[in-house]
Amino acid sequence: MNTALIILDYIFDIAHLEGKIARSAQQVAERNAIANANLVLALAQQKDWLRILVKVGFTPGYIDQPKHSRMFGQTHKLGAIELDRPGTEFHPSLAAELGELVIVKPRVSAFYGTNLDAALRARRIERLIICGVSTTWAVQSTARDAHDRDYQVLVLEEACAAATPEEHRMSMEMLAHIAEIVTLENLKDL
C-alpha cells in the first residue's frame, strides 16, 4: 500500500524548550518524541514511503494571521511562528534532511490551505502515518481531515507529544476511534 509519513510542527517555537509558544516542549523532550520521529524517518526512507515535514507559520508581517483566533491571535505580539524567522526552522534535533517535501500550513490541520492532499493524490498515497506536536491540536486535526478524505490513518504514538501526559492520553483515546494507534515496532512490519 502506498504510504506517506507526515511529521507535524517540530519547529523551534513550538517544540524547543526555548521556543516562544512551547507549551508541549517539555513533553517532547521527556517522551523522546523527536528521537522517535527520527527513527520513523529513517524507517520510511528504507521503505520508500513519502516523507513529509509540516510546519505552521504566518507570512512575514503576519498578513495572514487570524487576529481573532484564540490559538493564533497573539502570536504576532510574541514574535512567534513568523515564516523566514528562526522560530519556524525545524527543531535542531529533527533529521529534517530525511524529509522529501515540506508543507507550510497557515492553521492547525496540515490539509487546510495547503497542497498536501494534491501531493498525496499525485503519488497515489492510500495510508498516512501521522506524528508530531501537539497531539491535542495538529495531530488530531490532521488525522481527522485525513480520515474524512478516505485515507487509512495510523498515528505513531511514540513520536507525538502534548502539553501534558493527560492531554496526550486523552487525544490518543479519541484518535483510536478514527485511526490505528501504532508503535515503531508495528511499523517495521508494514
Score class of each variant (00 low, 15 high):
15 A>G: 15
15 A>Y: 05
17 L>A: 13
18 E>G: 15
19 G>L: 06
20 K>G: 12
20 K>M: 11
20 K>N: 11
22 A>D: 07
22 A>Y: 07
23 R>K: 13
24 S>T: 08
24 S>A: 13
25 A>H: 01
26 Q>L: 14
27 Q>S: 12
27 Q>P: 07
28 V>I: 08
28 V>F: 01
31 R>G: 03
33 A>S: 15
34 I>D: 00
36 N>T: 08
39 L>S: 08
39 L>W: 02
42 A>E: 15
42 A>S: 15
45 Q>Y: 07
45 Q>N: 05
46 Q>N: 15
47 K>L: 13
47 K>G: 10
47 K>S: 12
48 D>W: 05
50 L>Y: 05
51 R>A: 02
52 I>D: 03
53 L>K: 00
54 V>N: 02
56 V>E: 06
57 G>V: 02
58 F>D: 01
59 T>Y: 02
59 T>W: 02
59 T>H: 07
60 P>I: 03
65 Q>Y: 00
65 Q>E: 11
67 K>A: 11
68 H>S: 15
69 S>L: 10
69 S>A: 12
70 R>P: 08
73 G>E: 07
74 Q>A: 10
74 Q>L: 13
75 T>G: 00
77 K>N: 15
77 K>A: 15
79 G>H: 09
80 A>Y: 00
80 A>S: 14
80 A>H: 00
81 I>H: 04
82 E>R: 01
83 L>P: 04
84 D>K: 05
86 P>K: 08
86 P>W: 07
87 G>F: 05
87 G>W: 00
89 E>N: 11
89 E>M: 07
90 F>K: 00
90 F>I: 01
92 P>W: 04
94 L>R: 00
94 L>Q: 01
95 A>M: 10
97 E>K: 12
97 E>W: 11
100 E>M: 09
100 E>D: 15
101 L>M: 08
102 V>L: 13
104 V>W: 08
104 V>E: 12
106 P>I: 02
106 P>S: 10
106 P>Q: 03
108 V>K: 00
109 S>G: 10
109 S>N: 03
109 S>T: 08
112 Y>W: 13
113 G>S: 07
113 G>N: 05
114 T>Q: 03
116 L>M: 06
117 D>P: 06
117 D>S: 06
118 A>T: 08
119 A>R: 07
119 A>N: 09
119 A>M: 13
120 L>S: 02
121 R>T: 15
122 A>N: 14
122 A>K: 12
125 I>F: 03
125 I>T: 02
125 I>P: 00
127 R>K: 14
127 R>C: 13
128 L>K: 03
129 I>M: 10
129 I>K: 05
130 I>A: 01
131 C>M: 06
132 G>F: 00
132 G>D: 03
134 S>N: 04
135 T>N: 07
135 T>E: 05
136 T>Y: 09
138 A>D: 06
139 V>W: 02
139 V>C: 14
140 Q>T: 13
141 S>I: 06
144 R>V: 09
145 D>L: 08
146 A>H: 01
147 H>Y: 14
147 H>K: 11
148 D>H: 15
148 D>R: 12
154 L>V: 05
156 L>N: 06
156 L>D: 04
159 A>R: 01
159 A>E: 03
161 A>M: 10
162 A>L: 09
